[in-house]
Design a protein around this nucleic acid. Structure first.
Ligand SMILES: NC(=O)c1ccc[n+]([C@@H]2O[C@H](COP(=O)([O-])OP(=O)(O)OC[C@H]3O[C@@H](n4cnc5c(N)ncnc54)[C@H](O)[C@@H]3O)[C@@H](O)[C@H]2O)c1
Ligand SMILES: NC(=O)c1ccc[n+]([C@@H]2O[C@H](COP(=O)([O-])OP(=O)(O)OC[C@H]3O[C@@H](n4cnc5c(N)ncnc54)[C@H](O)[C@@H]3O)[C@@H](O)[C@H]2O)c1
Lengths: 213, 213
DNA sequence: CTCACGCTGTGAATCATTTCACAAGCATAT
DNA sequence: ATATGCTTGTGAAATGATTCACAGCGTGAG
């Protein structure tokens, strides 16, 4: 019954593609069309649709608005969710700019930083508080999801405070493995690792190409 | 013989942790220590060490400097590799700041942007060129790895030019599935999807907690 | 009205990755 | 010298994710 992590990621991607299709006026979509747009197989799409409990017709495929709605029911909370950001540096500011008005169900409502020159103002519609206020603001506003964009040395401490204040999910940009209690979910975005993977497989592919041809 | 994608990601992570250990003066490490630092199991670490062909002693564990070297031999190219960046916006600039002097084997040597106000200068040690020069600069410098940080609408076009100019690996920040020939590797960093995953599992965990206790 | 086609939904099979479990090893204490 | 208590390395088992393959169906053509 527990949904696989990969599936959730793909559903988020499908939704974005489907919204774009709807905005272009597309009403129906076949599994192979969505699959090709998402870069996965048609069977995968159909399986994923099973997990959101959505079915299509053999003749027309899936109904796009209906799919968007079902994915929303599955993925989203009932109420819009408040998200906190810790660390108003390069990455933090880029994220504020990016998320402004993008996903109405996930609104960045509070940012925190140690540096006094970055706090007590509103950036991209998000209020910036001194770090000392973090526990109380997160607790008061019932914030359950936070992005961590502070230097690696500070990430664990920040996470500890967030978790104690009630946060249940962390998106971590700092290049460290954050340790959290079992009931907290952490997703890491590790750009260095990603880039090293790209460099590694870029080389592999070249080698493979040569050896085959 | 083809190394799994996951393994490569973990090796990159291990290396970072090992370098930090070495800088603290640690000479030897047991699989369970590295595992705990990386947030994986000890068996996983030992398996991964097998793929880089590195062995430890039952008494002392693995030799830290030796491990760092072996992972380097496995992951890195012989020569330092040049990396290109396309899109000198919020994300692009954050990446330039971040990678400056971080990984000597992966050096960001050229950035490209459409916007004239961002080009023909040096930012964080990386020269910014007009987008028109991209194909020739990438080709001339033999660049094989590139980061794509342009708006979604432009990403496919940019990727096409890069691939034609000889790029074999892409790190893509734009929220679209980029289509590339079979011999090119693409890794996506999709912050929206990651955040939606975090929000989803944060909720799940809460539910799980309640139902168990 | 009937047929043929191409799609969906899904059990079963395949493929990939992780974990188990244990023989063999090495340093240390006795 | 040898017993002890850790560890490593690794087949084999388990788990997890993806793909196959096909029955069943709805639609549009004839
Ligand atoms: N910039 C990038 O492209 C990039 C890429 C990958 C990872 N990262 C990681 O993301 C994190 C942030 O990177 P950045 O480039 O935005 O760094 P940055 O230095 O620009 O910003 C860090 C911010 O965190 C604040 N801060 C420091 N300690 C704090 C604390 N204890 N509590 C609250 N705020 C604190 C600082 O005042 C600063 O505003 C780092 O861990 C970095 O390694 C950044
Ligand atoms: N900012 C974020 O936190 C964030 C997060 C996730 C994803 N992204 C994605 O990353 C990409 C960049 O985001 P950003 O916030 O840096 O955007 P941005 O608007 O700040 O920067 C985009 C840059 O690309 C340049 N550009 C546009 N078209 C171009 C083209 N055809 N060729 C070359 N350069 C071109 C622009 O001049 C600009 O400098 C977008 O696809 C965005 O969706 C950004």
């Amino acid at each position: 019954m527990m949904t696989p992590e990969r599936t959730v990621g793909r559903l988020s991607l499908y939704r974005r593609l489907l919204v774009a299709m709807r905005n272009r006026g597309t009403r129906h979509v076949f599994s192979h069309e969505l699959a090709s747009a998402a870069g996965v197989t048609a069977a995968q799409v159909r399986r994923d649709m099973m997990t959101v409990g959505c079915s299509g017709s053999p003749a027309r495929g899936y109904d796009v608005p209906e799919l968007i709605e079902h994915i929303g029911l599955f993925l989203d909370a009932d109420e819009p969710e408040a998200v906190a950001l810790v660390g108003v540096g390069n990455i933090g500011r880029a994220m504020m700019a990016y998320f402004e008005g993008r996903r109405p169900k996930l609104k960045m409502v509070a940012a925190f930083d140690q540096d006094g020159s970055k706090t007590n103002r509103v950036v991209h519609g998000c209020r910036c508080y001194p770090i000392e206020d973090m526990a109380s603001v997160v607790d008061d506003r019932g914030i359950r999801v936070a992005m961590v964009a502070v230097p690696a040395e500070a990430a664990q401490d920040v996470a500890d405070v967030l978790v104690r204040a009630g946060v249940r999910g962390l998106l971590n940009f700092a290049p460290v493995a954050i340790r959290v209690p079992e009931h907290v979910y952490v997703e890491d975005i590790d750009v260095t690792t990603s880039l090293e993977k790209v460099a590694f497989f870029a080389r592999q592919k070249r080698a493979h190409k040569v050896s085959v041809s």
